[in-house]
Nucleic acid binder design. Structure first.
Lengths: 199, 199
DNA sequence: GTCTATATCTAGATAGAC
DNA sequence: GTCTATCTAGATATAGAC
């Protein structure tokens, strides 16, 4: 089942943190249903007892924590990239490049951790669904703020934020499946063009 | 686990067809790993023996067949909608409306059957990944052809096709998670605007 | 082609010592 | 907080009668 060595998380982290990060990484590659709690414990170098100590809610609670972790990680990247460029259109374009490079370096395995964790959990686990909705809303808010700062109208900024986040999500998935950066490259160019058309 | 009654497939269909369609529907909601072969057999009104008779390759072969089924179904919709409108920009806009209505009617459960089936299978099952890549390429080809017919330059048509398919995928997933048609509405408007900007 | 029974394994979760 | 042992239920897959 596992073919590639999983990046180990530093022992300097607390047990809880190690478990959350490992869960997020594993679900990013294998999805929620494809990731076992025993595998999480093994790769986080924790025991099953410790996992259930920190997450008495079991797998659903782990999944929710993993989605929140993915939320925070991508929000960090997004914030930094939007702050580094005056022009949001350029920032989005650069972001697609960065996402493409990350994907390729992971041999097309590490897509969006929130997407891969949440897919297929709608019926069974509304808590995970909710955490994912919050993540997307969070990212949209960051994009909308950047557009507002750049002088876009409020309505345009909000609507563009929906499209930017949705298109990035879709392009990353398409790139992963196609094992090519082409979807991300095309979406980057087109999103930049679209954003500029509202100036 | 199951909360909603699954749409039964007509007994007029052959056993193999019933199994394939049921598999596609179930994996659309629960993902590949979340769908069991026994559940497939039960809901397709077939026995486990019949399932393995038609799909000796087991679950992976079922998953591949389900992805191909989803490919064909969405290609049908896509082709009809692109043929019904002279303007591809309008066709895409209408398509987002239709997708949103379908999602809402299913209580936000039935997103893209290919996406939900393929996510999380990259490491374990390259066959499913490949079938999904073919599906996306197929849909892109249909969009590109429509753009060519409408007089777009070949390079523009191909690049736009990448963005249209990727953005639709992402918007459908975002809409499902947000339980709202807003992502699809925004993407519909913006894709139409983007396409028109290349006329 | 269809059916039942079953083999084998792993999942999520729990108990209780330390 | 950590650890091991274990329970129960479910998974995929197979065998062989009809």
């Amino acid at each position: 089942m596992k073919k590639r060595p999983e990046p180990q998380h530093s022992d300097a982290l607390g047990t809880r943190e190690r478990i959350v990060r490992t869960t997020s990484r594993l679900m990013q590659r294998q999805g929620y249903q494809g990731t076992g709690i025993k595998q999480i414990a093994r790769e986080a170098q924790a025991t099953l007892g410790s996992v259930y100590h920190f997450f008495p809610g079991g797998k659903q609670e782990l999944g929710t924590a993993a989605v929140r972790q993915g939320d925070a990680e991508f929000a960090d990247i997004l914030e930094k990239m939007l702050a580094a460029e005056d022009d949001p259109a350029t920032a989005v374009l650069v972001l697609t490049k960065v996402l493409g490079e990350g994907l390729e370096e992971s041999d097309w395995l590490d897509g969006c951790p929130v997407t891969s964790t949440v897919v297929g959990t709608a019926v069974d686990s509304p808590g995970i669904q909710e955490a994912a909705a919050e993540a997307f809303a969070h990212w949209r808010a960051l994009v909308a703020e950047a557009l507002l700062r750049a002088g876009f109208a409020e309505k345009d900024a909000k609507e563009l934020a929906y499209t930017v986040v949705s298109a990035l999500e879709g392009a990353e998935m398409a790139a992963q499946v196609a094992r090519s950066t082409q979807p991300l490259d095309a979406v980057g160019q087109h999103l930049a063009r679209l954003i500029r058309s509202y100036r």
